[in-house]
């Protein structure tokens, strides 16, 4: 074998070795960072049953808990984000007043997901409707399409963000059902904070869950049921 050939083989071997040494730590870090997480299951449908008879008009605990959990300012100006809000409704025909929390209803057929041009609005397999902040271009079409006004646009630079809940100026955001807590086996902050236990959170598909059985035993409503979006959030006592 000629000298040149041997040299070439040696060179190729060394190059391959060097490349492997260079890439390996990166691959290791990548797999560590990503881990082998389990994806959301389509067997699950997360939802809420809100008992409006237990919701007190002057109580704002769910809103405060949401703001703290998700790092929202809690401001109420027209440009501030409000992922959950208390609404007072008065029946025009009889004057009956009801108070209730309103947030993303996590529809089975979400209009925001239909209209989003970039697939930034999406529905997870377990029914949670989310915004991918990396894909959102800030067109606000989802805000126009949402029948519940559940979404907010980030109008200015943010500071002191909660690392679990990254947000971004120029993108749209909404209640995530505290997805970061759900994935850790916890319940959403608003449900946890409600002293009157007006917010019942759980798996609407699980025959053993409290929410499954309660939705079957008490009369509950979907808001704007006429739109047939099959919301994950239901209201009792309306």
């Amino acid at each position: 074998m000629s000298d040149t050939n041997t040299q070439r083989r040696e060179f190729l071997k060394t190059s391959l070795g060097a490349a492997a040494v260079a890439i390996a730590p990166g691959m290791l870090l990548y797999s560590t960072a990503n881990g082998k997480t389990e994806g959301a299951s389509s067997q699950v449908r997360w939802g809420m049953l809100i008992d409006t008879t237990q919701c007190k008009p002057d109580c704002n605990d769910c809103v405060t808990a949401c703001n703290t959990e998700n790092g929202l300012s809690g401001g109420k100006s027209a440009t501030d984000s409000q992922w959950i809000r208390k609404i007072e409704i008065k029946d025009v025909s009889n004057g009956r007043v009801t108070s209730l929390p309103m947030m993303c209803q996590h529809c089975e057929h979400p209009p925001c997901v239909d209209v989003c041009p970039t697939q930034a609005s999406f529905k997870r397999a377990d029914g949670i409707v989310l915004v991918d902040r990396h894909l959102c271009i800030g067109c606000r079409y989802c805000m126009m399409a949402c029948p519940y006004k559940a979404r907010s646009f980030v109008h200015e630079t943010l500071t002191d963000q909660n690392p679990d809940v990254p947000r971004g100026k120029g993108t749209v955001e909404a209640c995530s059902l505290c997805v970061h807590r759900i994935d850790k086996g916890q319940i959403p902050a608003c449900a946890e904070a409600c002293q009157n236990k007006a917010i019942l959170f759980g798996n609407l598909n699980d025959t053993n869950s409290e929410i499954y059985n309660k939705v079957r035993s008490v009369a509950s409503k979907q808001i704007r049921a006429d739109l047939q979006l099959n919301t994950g959030v239901r209201y009792q006592g309306l």
């Binding site: 239909d114 697939q119 894909l135 800030g138 067109c139 100026k169």
Partner: peptide, 21 residues
Amino acid sequence: LGRPDRIIVAATHYNLTSVFA
């Protein structure tokens, strides 16, 4: 747009159900 710098995303992630798309 809130993020005009990301306009290319409109081409790389296309949502067939969106009239904007």
